[in-house]
């Protein structure tokens, strides 16, 4: 289990009120609902499970792991550029960079030394700033080990998806808590399996990717993704 200080840090960084702009991203919830593919709690729970198993666990988590272990900003930037190349959807890439840069900005303003150094690199390359890579730096600055960093990364995704569903009226507040409980169990299962060190990042969330990519042609939307 985590020590008290670490547990409190997890609550701080996993809080949806953490001022990093997470409320601007629905990661497909808005598009799927608009396209008639997400209607109610059962659909939401299934998509959260898919996000966790088929994208976060096999794409975000290995990228976060590599960045958490990276020796210097240049090595982090190489992982960041790989994140860019590994995300075929322009809207998904844009969302990941915007979310990552916002999170990095907050941490840098709070004085996180790794974040301050990495932020200085961002102006030199528009491809940099992807969310899982930045999360690794932010959580390293917060003295969270890899296990804790994975936990808060997965949880902020879950929290963001459920929060977006509530704001879109897909579910109510009580259902949201039920969905969070379901997602908690899913995250526990995913995290129970350690990642092989040589795992090549991958993802297979076609409906989510399509829903986000269709965002550019939607007349009205509340969320960036």
């Amino acid at each position: 289990m985590f020590e008290t200080a670490t547990a409190l840090a997890l609550m701080q960084y996993g809080d949806s009120a953490y001022p990093a702009g997470g409320f601007a991203f629905s990661w497909g919830v808005e598009g799927l609902a608009a396209d008639g593919l997400l209607d109610g709690q059962a659909d939401l729970d299934a998509f959260i499970g898919e996000h966790l198993a088929f994208r976060w666990n096999c794409m975000d988590r290995p990228l976060l792991t590599r960045a958490h272990r990276a020796d210097d900003p240049a090595a982090v930037a190489a992982i960041d550029r790989f994140a860019e190349a590994s995300t075929p959807s322009a809207q998904m890439r844009d969302g990941s960079r915007r979310a990552g840069r916002a999170l990095l900005g907050v941490s840098a303003r709070l004085g996180g030394p790794l974040c301050v150094r990495y932020r200085a690199l961002l102006s030199s390359d528009v491809r940099l700033g992807h969310l899982p890579v930045v999360q690794a730096l932010v959580y390293r600055d917060a003295a969270l080990d890899l296990r804790a960093a994975e936990l808060v990364s997965g949880w902020t995704l879950v929290n963001g998806l459920v929060s977006a569903a509530v704001r879109l009226g897909v579910i109510g507040h009580v259902e949201a808590q039920q969905s969070l409980e379901t997602a908690r169990r899913a995250l526990v299962d995913v995290l129970a399996e350690p990642l092989p060190d040589d795992l090549a990042p991958s993802s297979f969330t076609p409906l989510i990717d399509i829903a986000v990519s269709r965002g550019g042609s939607r007349a009205v939307r509340l969320f960036t993704t």
């Binding site: 799927l32 593919l37 997400l38 059962a42 659909d43 729970d45 299934a46 998509f47 499970g49 898919e50 088929f54 096999c58 550029r81 790989f82 190349a85 590994s86 075929p88 090549a200 990042p201 991958s202 993802s203 297979f204 969330t205 076609p206 409906l207």
Partner: peptide
């Protein structure tokens, strides 16, 4: 030398829920 795109899937099953209604990708 740098890859512009690395698009990779690595799966052992198809998705559940609404995704299971789709059989071809």
């Amino acid at each position: 030398d740098d890859a512009v795109l690395v698009d990779r899937i690595d799966i052992r099953s198809l998705g559940q829920g609404r995704t299971a209604q789709f059989r071809a990708f």
